[in-house]
Write a protein that binds this DNA or RNA. Sequence first.
DNA 1: TCATTTGATGAAGGATTCTTCGGGTTTGGG
DNA 2: CCCAAACCCGAAGAATCCTTCATCAAATGA
Lengths: 212, 212
Amino acid sequence: MSADALVAFEPRKTPIQARSTVTVEAISQATIQVLLSHGAERLTTTRVAERAGVSVGTLYQYYPNKQSLLFAVLEHHMNNVAATVEAACERACHKPLAEMIKEMVEAFVDAKMERADISVALYRVSADVGGPTLIKRISQRSRKAVEAMLQTVPDAKSSPDKFAIDIMLAAMAGAMRSLLEAGPTSSTVRKSREQLVLLCQSYMAAATARRG
Amino acid sequence: MSADALVAFEPRKTPIQARSTVTVEAISQATIQVLLSHGAERLTTTRVAERAGVSVGTLYQYYPNKQSLLFAVLEHHMNNVAATVEAACERACHKPLAEMIKEMVEAFVDAKMERADISVALYRVSADVGGPTLIKRISQRSRKAVEAMLQTVPDAKSSPDKFAIDIMLAAMAGAMRSLLEAGPTSSTVRKSREQLVLLCQSYMAAATARRG
DNA sequence: TCATTTGATGAAGGATTCTTCGGGTTTGGG
DNA sequence: CCCAAACCCGAAGAATCCTTCATCAAATGA
C-alpha cells in the first residue's frame, strides 16, 4: 500500500448544501454502527446506506468505494487519538521525565479505551484500508509531540533520539492492541495502564542515560 | 472470533497415502506464494490450487474453506516463532537477567526477520482468520517459557509476574510489527534490535525491583 | 488379480457484492 | 416564480468467488 494509493480513498464530492452535510455525517456514523453490529466481513455498501437512511447511489456520490468508507472512519479515529496524545504532551512540558511519560501514556490508553469497541473493530479492517500507511503518517505527529515534550525536561540531560521514541510508541500501541483484542476487564485495564507507564518510563530513562 | 470458532479451520481429511501428503504440502506452499505474489485481496482458492498444480476439488478435500488455508499458514508461522523463542529461553537459563532478555529478544527479532515477507503478508490476513485467538493461545507458550527462564536468575530476587511478562511480549511483538510494516532497512533492523533489547531489559529490571 | 479405499478432477451452481447511471426531487439565487 | 445546480434514488449490470458433486484414476492389500 504505497502512500499515493490513499488517493483512491479520498472523497469524491464535497457537500455544499446543509442537506448533504447531514447525509455524509449519517453515512459515516452508519459505517461505524454496521461495523460494530455486523462485523467487517458483512459490511456492505448497501447495508451502510440502508442504516444511514439513504440509498446506495447517494453513498457513492461522496465515497468513491467501500474502502473509503472505512478509511474515513479509521482516519478520524486515529486523528482523535493523536490529538489527545499531543494535548497531553503539551500539558506535561517542563515536568519531570517520569511524570511526562506517565501523562502521555495514560492519555493514550484512556483515548483508546474511550472507544474500545471501535478500536477493536478498526484493527480488523486497518490492513485492508491502508492502515500501515496511515499509521506511518499519523504516528509521526505523536513522535514530534513527544520529542518536543522531552526537550523541556528540567534536568538538562540529553533526550532520547527519534528512533527510541518511535520504538516506545510502537511498543505502547502494540501492547495496547494486544490488550484490546484480548477483551480486557476493567481490572486488567487498570493494571495494564500502570505497567505500560512503567515500561515507557524505564525505557526512556535507560535511553536517556545511554546518551547523556 | 471465539476459541471454538477455530474448529471451522481444522483440516477436513488427513493424508494417508504418500501422494496426498505431497499434495497437501504443495497446497500449503502455494498459499504462501500466492499470498506473496498476488496479495491477500486476490488470493482465491482456484488460484492457489492452480499454483499448487492440483484442482480446486482436491484442495477442498483437505481444507474445509479458504480461511483454513491461511489459518494453517499462520499457525505454522507462529508456532515456528514461538519455538524459536522457547529454545532461546532454555539456552539462556541461569544467565544474568540482562543477558536472558537479550537472547530472548534477539531470537524473536531474528525469527521474524528470517521470514519478513511472510510475516508482513500474514499481518494482513491475521484478523480474518482468527489471528487474535491464535495469538492468545500461542503467546501463552512464550510467556511460560520466559517465566520459567526468569525463575533461574542467579541473583535471588523475585521475578516479574505473569502480567508484566505479557505486557513485555505484547510490546515487543507490537513494535516488531510496526517495524516490519514500515519496510525496514538492514540499518533500522539493527538499531531496532538493540533498542528492543534495551526496552525489555529496562522494563524487566524495573518490574523486578518493584516486587523484589 | 480384484475389490475397496483413497485421491483427483473441474464444470457448474449459487450466492454475494460493488458500482453505475438514467431519471426524478429539492434547494436557492435571480 | 423559474431555472440551474445540487442532491437523491434504486433497479440492474457486471464481475467474482466459494464450494460441491458426480465421475474417473490410482493405490492398497488380501
